[in-house]
Amino acid sequence: MLVLSRRTGESVVLGDDITVTILEVRGDVVRVGIDAPRSVKVHRAELLAELASSNQSAASPPEDAVASLAEAMRKRQE
């Protein structure tokens, strides 16, 4: 991991077309501006983790739902 120190108004350039600028520093909060093409996805890490967790929950039905479905299918075959 590259670690840099920047002051308000200073930037870091990633590749040819992404610029990250420090907009403001207040205590322990840093406002960051990101200038990137629309084709580049920019997301906050905590939202990606929450989305992954939500998707995992949605894709894994509760055990009783699986058992109920299996029982319904057995009854249907009879």
Results as ranks from 00 to 15, higher is better:
residue 56 Q to V: 09
residue 4 L to M: 04
residue 64 D to C: 10
residue 42 V to E: 06
residue 37 P to T: 06
residue 13 V to N: 12
residue 46 E to T: 11
residue 10 E to F: 03
residue 42 V to M: 01
residue 47 L to W: 12
residue 14 L to E: 10
residue 45 A to M: 12
residue 75 K to I: 04
residue 45 A to W: 01
residue 48 L to W: 10
residue 23 L to D: 10
residue 41 K to S: 12
residue 22 I to Y: 00
residue 12 V to S: 05
residue 26 R to F: 03
residue 74 R to L: 07
residue 78 E to V: 01
residue 37 P to K: 04
residue 4 L to W: 00
residue 75 K to H: 06
residue 51 L to G: 10
residue 2 L to D: 13
residue 29 V to N: 05
residue 75 K to D: 10
residue 73 M to D: 07
residue 66 V to L: 15
residue 68 S to H: 02
residue 46 E to K: 11
residue 40 V to A: 04
residue 56 Q to F: 15
residue 35 D to C: 04
residue 65 A to D: 07
residue 61 P to E: 04
residue 25 V to T: 13
residue 29 V to F: 10
residue 53 S to P: 02
residue 60 S to L: 02
residue 55 N to E: 12
residue 56 Q to L: 13
residue 28 D to E: 14
residue 64 D to Y: 14
residue 42 V to A: 04
residue 78 E to N: 12
residue 77 Q to A: 13
residue 76 R to W: 01
residue 59 A to C: 08
residue 43 H to R: 08
residue 31 R to E: 09
residue 21 T to V: 15
residue 11 S to K: 05
residue 68 S to V: 00
residue 26 R to A: 15
residue 55 N to R: 11
residue 64 D to F: 11
residue 63 E to P: 03
residue 47 L to C: 06
residue 37 P to S: 09
residue 27 G to I: 09
residue 16 D to R: 13
residue 76 R to C: 00
residue 38 R to P: 04
residue 30 V to Q: 01
residue 46 E to L: 06
residue 71 E to V: 08
residue 18 I to Q: 09
residue 73 M to Y: 03
residue 7 R to Y: 01
residue 27 G to P: 06
residue 17 D to T: 09
residue 76 R to Y: 12
residue 37 P to Y: 02
residue 17 D to Q: 12
residue 3 V to I: 12
residue 2 L to H: 06
residue 70 A to Y: 08
residue 1 M to H: 13
